[in-house]
Write a protein that binds this DNA or RNA. Structure first.
Lengths: 255, 255
DNA sequence: GTTATGGGAG
DNA sequence: CTCCCATAAC
């Protein structure tokens, strides 16, 4: 079973890239973030033709998540139960006996801002969400753009980026506390290399110089993690005609 | 010798269409209007690669003209000599012994507006320009988007469009007075059919219903007109991925 | 840089 | 419907 996370930076602007990549890569599950499309405008037809099921939660201009799958989806829910008016950043579904939580964690703007507080709190709420709804012994995947590079090895220049909202001790701690419930970093199970990134700023020619960040993750509970056979970042979509600033991360499971 | 006029409605937005069409059609001269690009941003590299020379006069957002050619250009001049601060609507060059005046005549907004006065006056100044600089016995081409359909046969519904700035007796008269100096309508020399248009409004599905206007013209002085062998409108670019609202008009000369 | 928006223009 | 712009977010 092949599961992917990909921040598409507008699903409609990236439609050709996403469809081409789906067709070539044939993942079982594709979790996308920053779809930037309202539900009413979601391009369902294109994915019907591609033979994928979909669940989505979007809003105008910003955020938005969508999960595509070959197999049937069930028990779909979006956002946190207590906060129906939240931004479109979380969608849960069950596919093939696995709970898949697709999340677009707030970026946080600056460490002094309210948005950063919102980010830290969002992680906290997500931690409570897992505790309340699942057990670490369940097959659960937490997937998406976390807007956090967990360790110095996960950014191109830890010294220069020190204190950035996506490489900030408090953000790292907030993420770690969610992890502590029972998640394993599937990528780091398979690869301990430096220089492995999923995001490059559009500016500065950062992709060509590999000035990147590892912000997109596939986390699995123990029963799933022990069945993972591979995890890798696919940089091909970043070389497409209209690349996103993120690139897909792929995990494979014996499931 | 193949000469073309094409209002591209943004040269940069239409770059792929224009390059593809150039490569397929191989005209000797291509006059474009509404390039909507400042000279500093002109996409010279793409046309260098395509093997075309270019002369251009542009401005931000609106108007702009560019003439492309396989052969060498000389004696380039833009605008009217007396009005250096005019909009970028006229560029003259000489190619292969022919004077080529590429013009984007003001649209005129509404018959009551100052812009319509400007349009009528622009034709008048152009008439004086020809009188002052050339003889009707010279090989001169006046080419471009004139924003005038000269006769009822040149619009899809003369009754409904009566009084429109592009089908207005005063605009038609102003254009006719420039013609009277010594120009022949090369298209009408070869084709007297109705329903032959070069412009369709993006709205209303007008292209599919052929609700068009013949606004783009290739006019020639006698020595050139008598050597014209064909003149036709090529609707293929209007079927491209990103069509302009205009389509090219092509003239061929034994020259 | 690249996406989005809304307003102005045709 | 398709451009342009300015602004905002990342």
């Amino acid at each position: 079973m092949k599961v992917v996370s990909f921040n598409v930076n507008s699903l409609r602007a990236r439609l050709a890239v996403v469809l081409g990549w789906l067709s070539e890569f044939q993942p079982d599950v594709l979790c996308t973030q920053e779809t930037k499309v309202q539900d009413v405008d979601f391009p369902t037809d294109a994915f019907d033709e591609a033979g994928y099921k979909y669940v989505f939660k979007g809003q105008k201009s910003y955020n938005g998540v969508a999960t595509f799958s070959k197999g049937q989806t069930s028990n779909v829910a979006s956002g946190f139960a207590d906060e129906p008016k939240d931004e479109a950043r979380l969608i849960k579904t069950e596919i093939n006996g696995i709970v898949i939580v697709n999340s677009y964690v707030p970026q946080g703007y600056s460490p002094e801002s309210e948005k950063f507080e919102y980010k830290l709190n969002w992680f906290k709420r997500l931690g409570e969400y897992f505790k309340k709804n699942f057990e670490p012994t369940d097959p659960v995947l937490w997937v998406g753009d976390f807007n956090v590079a967990p360790k110095p090895i996960d950014v191109y220049d830890p010294a220069a980026l020190s204190g950035h909202v996506c490489f900030h001790p408090e953000a790292q701690k907030a993420m770690k506390e969610v992890m502590a419930w029972g998640f394993i970093d599937v990528f780091r199970k398979h690869c301990s290399e430096a220089g492995q990134y999923t995001f490059w700023d559009y500016r500065l020619n950062s992709f060509k110089r590999n000035l990147g960040w590892r912000l997109d993750h596939i986390m699995a509970t123990q029963p799933l993690a022990k069945k993972s056979t591979d995890c890798y970042i696919d940089k091909k979509p970043r070389l497409a005609e209209k690349p996103s600033d993120h690139t897909p991360i792929v995990a494979e499971f014996d499931w």
